[in-house]
């Protein structure tokens, strides 16, 4: 209890002092904590394995990360928040429309397919047109990787939520059914959040705290331990790991 109290006291000075807006202040603080530092966009190449110095085989995902360029810097004065927008994926200029080309012309960057924004505490270190390459990461660093998972379509209970199935024979007609989904007349409805069949995959997922095994600055490759969402060719966002309790 004492520890809890002390925490709340120490957290208060960061928010506004007004008692009415006290609750709102806490929310704002949490939002600030969730901000990620500037990351980089990349393409999943595939998986393989490499050997560590002591001979252990490490499963790695190869990601072609960057080259990205900074296309816009948002500041508190102009946009109300601080963020860095980066572009990735070179395309021909005829692939983009005039508004997009005009936007990129401001930062004098080549036409890019993808634009992505990362909120930061301060944008002081960044300048327009600056290139972000795979070497912004170092070996041994922990990163979060976000991307779209492989779509599995409309999937049933067993595939989507690992429900167990009924007997397939001996007269059973309960093969891949969900079983009971709730009580009867009271409450007379199914509670929200009940796990049911539906679209599986093809949604954005981030995998946290993956280790960077190797950085190939020459070819802009990142070797990251473990798997990441999506198939080869998926667009990925790689950011330094957000570790709860730090920052």
């Amino acid at each position: 209890m004492a520890i809890l109290l002390r925490r709340t006291v120490s957290a208060r000075p960061r928010g506004r002092t007004s008692f009415h807006s006290g609750q709102a202040c806490v929310v704002i603080e949490q939002k600030e904590q969730r901000e990620v530092s500037v990351g980089i966009l990349g393409t999943k190449v595939g998986m393989t394995q490499v050997f560590s110095e002591d001979g252990a085989a490490i499963p790695v995902t190869v990601i072609e990360a960057g080259p990205c360029s900074i296309t816009q810097i948002k500041t508190k004065e102009t946009d109300g928040y601080e963020a860095v927008q980066i572009g990735y994926g070179a395309v021909k200029s005829k692939a983009l429309n005039k508004p997009k080309l005009g936007h990129l012309a401001k930062s004098e960057t080549d036409p890019v397919r993808h634009l992505c924004e990362y909120r930061t505490q301060s944008v002081g270190d960044y300048e327009l047109g600056q290139a972000l390459l795979a070497d912004v990461f170092t070996e041994g660093q922990l990163v979060d990787v976000a991307g779209q998972t492989i779509g599995r379509g409309f999937a049933g209970y067993q595939k989507r939520h690992n429900f167990s199935r009924g007997p397939m024979s001996h007269g059973s007609k309960n093969h891949r059914q969900p079983g009971s989904t709730g009580a009867g007349t009271t409450p007379g409805r199914i509670y929200p959040g009940k796990r049911m069949a539906g679209q599986m995959g093809a949604k954005r997922v981030s995998i946290r705290k993956l280790e960077v095994v190797k950085v190939d600055a020459e070819r802009n490759l990142l070797l990251i331990k473990g798997g990441v969402p999506g198939k080869a060719g998926t667009l990925l966002s790689i950011t330094p790991a957000t570790i709860v309790g730090q920052q």
């Binding site: 190449v45 595939g46 998986m47 393989t48 394995q49 490499v50 190869v62 072609e64 190939d216 070819r219 490759l221 070797l223 080869a232 060719g233």
Partner: peptide, 10 residues
């Protein structure tokens, strides 16, 4: 290409 990249890393 992707597969060539993987082979070159291996």
């Amino acid at each position: 290409k992707g597969q060539e990249l993987l082979r070159s890393i291996e």
